[in-house]
């Protein structure tokens, strides 16, 4: 049995699982909000970097959904695009390991105090 477990915010953990792990069926689709706001930056970063536009969109949707400020998003799609690329690579890492069977199963378990 090889297992990793974390404890954290229910909302964030569930969202990470639903957006970044393919647990059957189609992978999550970008909701469009990131594309609407950052399409130019997404295309530029994807054109010059090692990550796909689709992944960047998924990632920005995730950041927006969890309250990333406009300033932080502007930063990530501007002068600190390297950090966005790193996070996008992280997303691709998780998806790759899920696809190739390194990650066999992903489960979210609610924690109760008693």
């Amino acid at each position: 049995m090889n297992k990793i477990s974390f404890k954290g915010s229910n909302a964030i953990i569930r969202d990470i699982v639903s957006r970044f792990f393919v647990t059957g069926g189609d992978p999550a689709r970008p909701c469009g909000e990131a594309r609407a706001r950052y399409v130019k930056a997404i295309e530029e970063i994807a054109a010059t970097g090692p990550v796909e536009a689709h992944t960047l969109e998924l990632l920005l949707d995730f950041l927006i959904a969890h309250g990333a400020t406009g300033a932080r998003l502007d930063e990530l799609t501007g002068e600190r695009a390297d950090e966005l690329v790193q996070l996008a690579l992280d997303v691709e890492t998780l998806r790759r390991y899920r696809r190739d069977g390194t990650i066999l199963d992903v489960r979210v378990v609610d924690e109760w105090p008693f």
Binding site: M1, G101, I103, R107, D110, E111
Partner: peptide
């Protein structure tokens, strides 16, 4: 429940 546990089962 505010907290959850994420359990990832890896290949062996």
């Amino acid at each position: 429940t505010e907290n959850s546990r994420l359990e990832i089962t890896l290949s062996d």
